[in-house]
């Protein structure tokens, strides 16, 4: 369970996240939607203790993330496929993470197999395509077999088969009773993956409701509803000077 309460992050005069409050429950896939620059990634970083909130709290299973010494058994996360060292092999990258968390060595081989990277485990990550790096990031998130999983744009760069695989993976993880929180810009993909949605724009909450309810708001599906509800609060739009 993820509990975000009055979470705020300011950078100088810019408010990236503004008094955000929502809860992500276990047993279902919760989609995290919002236009570019709406504060999704900042929210996820605050949840993971990577940046400090200006005010408010972010709790995972009742504890602030940084209250834990090691975390992979509790929380698995993929923030960006590029959060790796290009000079290391996939196996070495995962081996170091597993070792730091006191996980059995065998887990590295298991997650590599789970994401389909066994054959390239000894290749340096710098030679990987974006899709392969996404798979490696998902493998890292699965290492500790955690009850809570966070994914930021996990299907970017995946081939169609990979997108379907990821969808089934997320749904399967949720079906096992885990908390699964997935951000994405791909409305059609979200429609197929998520049960529940948290939608933000300009750092504030727009919706926290079942996907079906949200999609029904505009009468024309998820994409229509998203455009209608966030359209006037998009920070970066092509062909426009603000």
């Amino acid at each position: 369970m993820i509990e975000v309460n009055e979470l705020t992050k300011r950078y100088g005069h810019t408010v990236a996240v503004d008094a955000l409050t929502f809860t992500v429950r276990p047993g279902r896939v919760t989609g995290f939607l919002g236009p570019n620059g709406s504060g999704k990634s900042t929210t996820l970083r605050m949840l993971l203790g990577l940046c400090a909130p200006t005010s408010g709290t972010a709790l995972i299973d009742g504890r602030p993330f940084r209250a834990r010494g090691v975390a992979l058994r509790h929380v698995g996360a993929l923030l960006s496929a590029d959060d790796v060292h290009p000079g290391r092999t996939a196996r070495a990258h995962l081996a170091a993470l597993a070792r730091a968390n006191g996980l059995p060595r065998g887990r590295v081989g298991e997650v590599l197999r789970d994401v389909g990277l066994t054959e390239v485990a000894k290749r340096r990550v710098g030679t990987f395509s974006l899709g392969m790096k996404q798979r490696l990031g998902i493998a890292a998130a699965l290492l500790g077999d955690p009850p809570v999983l966070l994914f930021d744009e996990p299907v970017n760069g995946l081939d169609p088969e990979g997108v379907r695989w990821a969808r089934e993976l997320f749904r399967g993880l949720a079906a096992e009773g885990r908390t699964v929180f997935v951000s994405s810009h791909l409305m059609s993909e979200m429609e197929n993956t998520a049960d529940h949605l948290v939608v933000i724009a300009d750092g504030t909450l727009v919706a926290d409701e079942p996907l079906a309810d949200f999609a029904a708001r505009a009468g024309g599906g998820l994409e229509e509803a998203f455009m209608k509800l966030t359209g006037d609060r998009v920070r970066y739009r092509a062909g426009e000077v603000r």
Binding site: G69, A71, L97, A100
Partner: peptide, 9 residues
Amino acid sequence: RTTFTAVPA
């Protein structure tokens, strides 16, 4: 970020 997500300490 991956490192500190795995080891918050």
